[in-house]
Design a protein around this nucleic acid. Structure first.
Lengths: 344, 344
DNA sequence: TTGTAAGCGTTATCAG
DNA sequence: CTGATAACGCTTACAA
């Protein structure tokens, strides 16, 4: 069933039917009525391909969400949706796999959907470096810094990852921990992971704490299972640590389970601090202490940046939003040590 | 940049360029080489709208996933993807909101993407009843029973929800529990929730246990927070229960948190059994005892049904896959009671 | 207010 | 093997 059939059926012409279906003016009420009724009855829907092929610019903002099984992005998306009213444009969301190229996907969707701008939820700098020059729409990369890429039409908004790493360690140190281990993401591929790591290292140095990446660091992917395994490995290699900082809540939850399985109580025997501030962290036992990203600010800033770029044609800006330490239950002062290890 | 530009640029004609870009035969190696190179250099991508507008049947299977923040569907999708090789067709996944009409969306996408079949991950029977007659492709509805809808091109595969509800209660009873409360979904809108509830009721009857829906049942949406609140409410109304069955793991996790906050230890004071078998349940403290759906079988059966319908033109079939009880840590025998309440 | 006709970027069917 | 040319279903001037 096409618009043509509808025209024949109602006795009106193509043009009139199209106008009605697009809520355009200059149509008699009678025509509108008749055509709308016929459309409803036959369950007619415009062919989006033909429509978009013809239209040279759309009306929506494209959101490319990398990884559909990502709590943080889910929350971010929810937040964006709830703020979409303040922005006048509807959101078209596209999910792609963790290891696909979000920029190439964006290029494809840009000519397909002809959006006014695009919001990237996650993405790899490498992809942007290689392919982004093909796209000229205003874009905002969320949760990854794009400052050094210096594309004029690519802004970014990120949490202050380095500071976050530092805060986590500072917190643990302030509780009295001296021997802290890290569970991190792959620094080679994830800028975010690298920055958090560097922040933590800076804190170690600041507090003159020893840290041996070979022994005290595990690099893993973002999953419960990987967090679990990382903690086990750390436990095998090194039985002295009193605290662990995991660069994501998901990892932290896996780690807590491994610790408990090894007979360590959290936080009595070992403290754990996560990162992200996911909802689940409020319901775990113990509740997860974490450095929380502000989903609200991330969403708000993204929209502001995109909108000002779309309307004012402002150049790329790269902003950082603050994180906040959530002191919940999984971190506490260490038990009185029976002597500092390594120092007789 | 269009195929026309590419043609002009390489000196070949539209037709030849199109043939090259679609890996068709009857093209000289030289033409293929030149055109492919030019395409790569300019980062050219075919316009999907024009392409699909022209093509009268596609090659893929459409998956409509209802709710993107749904662990079960995420796992299911992963499982489907991993089995996609055995099916010869690529999957095109579309996510829609919990409260959108998945059938209307399917209708739209069918004429847009022209898939060979469609897989619904979740869906409401009401929508199917109203709108499904517009679609004539082979379809499979996963996690909701479509038997009574009796559309010849709509199969379904579901877990045995009624049995599952019964198993959960049987298990709790076998551990020695007599006073069990329920946290459920909205029975009016969710068939799944209704069936699990009915299964549980049957078990109560079988074991001659009292159950007062007004007091012992809370109907909520699927979230940690709702599970948390439901458990609190139940606790206020009724301090005697020794076990709770929640119809989803997410609810169960929220409930455990509420119980612990109220000073009840799980499973020492109160046992909790969930439903679904989500990954997170293996990492909670305590690990979650649950009735697990078999994501593997759900995925496998869905694919089988769809494929046989697509190829053999077989009529709709409505299959049920078994669930399995996972005895983990959140359920145990109740403490010795200090006298059965109500019986002096 | 309505009808007509020219594309949008492809694919597919023809002749060459 | 290659090049014209007619659709695909729609929007949008422009004409009536």
């Amino acid at each position: 069933m096409t618009i043509k059939d509808l025209a024949a059926q109602t006795g009106y012409s193509l043009g009139t039917v199209s106008r009605v279906l697009n809520n355009q003016p200059n149509v008699s009420n009678r025509a509108r009525e008749v055509i709308l009724k016929a459309a409803k009855e036959s369950g007619f829907q415009l062919n989006a391909n033909a429509k978009q092929l013809k239209q040279h610019r759309g009306t929506s903002v494209l959101v490319i969400c990398k990884g559909n099984n990502n709590q943080l992005f889910s929350s971010l998306l929810e937040e964006l949706q709830s703020r979409v009213a303040q922005m006048k444009y509807p959101l078209v969301v596209d999910y792609i796999d963790e290891n696909e190229n979000e920029v190439r996907q964006a290029i494809r969707l840009c000519q397909e959907k002809k959006p006014l701008g695009v919001l990237f939820l996650g993405g790899s700098r490498e992809h942007f470096r290689r392919d982004f020059h093909h796209i000229s729409l205003p874009c905002v990369l969320v949760t990854n810094d794009a400052a050094d890429l210096a594309f004029p039409n690519l802004s970014s908004v990120t949490s202050d990852d380095a500071l976050a790493g530092e805060m986590a360690i500072d917190y643990l140190v302030s509780l009295g921990h001296r021997k802290i281990v890290l569970i991190g993401g792959e620094r080679e591929t994830s800028d975010t992971a690298r920055k958090r790591f560097e922040g933590a290292m800076a804190a170690f140095e600041k507090h003159s704490l020893a840290f041996d990446p070979e022994r005290d660091y595990e690099s893993i992917r973002f999953s419960y299972e990987d967090g679990y395994q990382a903690a086990r490995t750390l436990l095998c290699r090194n039985r002295e640590f009193t605290a662990v900082f995991a660069v994501s809540d998901v990892m932290a939850i896996g780690a807590i389970r491994a610790l408990e399985d090894a007979g360590k109580r959290v936080p009595r025997d070992v403290s754990v601090v996560g990162f992200d501030g996911l909802t689940i962290g409020e319901y775990t036992v113990p509740r997860l202490s974490t450095v929380a990203q502000s989903v609200q600010m991330l969403a708000q800033k993204s929209i502001e940046l995109l909108q000002s770029a779309m309307e004012g044609g402002k150049n790329g800006r790269w902003v950082t939003v603050p994180v906040t330490l959530m002191q919940r239950e999984s971190a506490a002062a260490p038990k009185r040590s029976k002597g500092v290890p390594g120092i007789p």
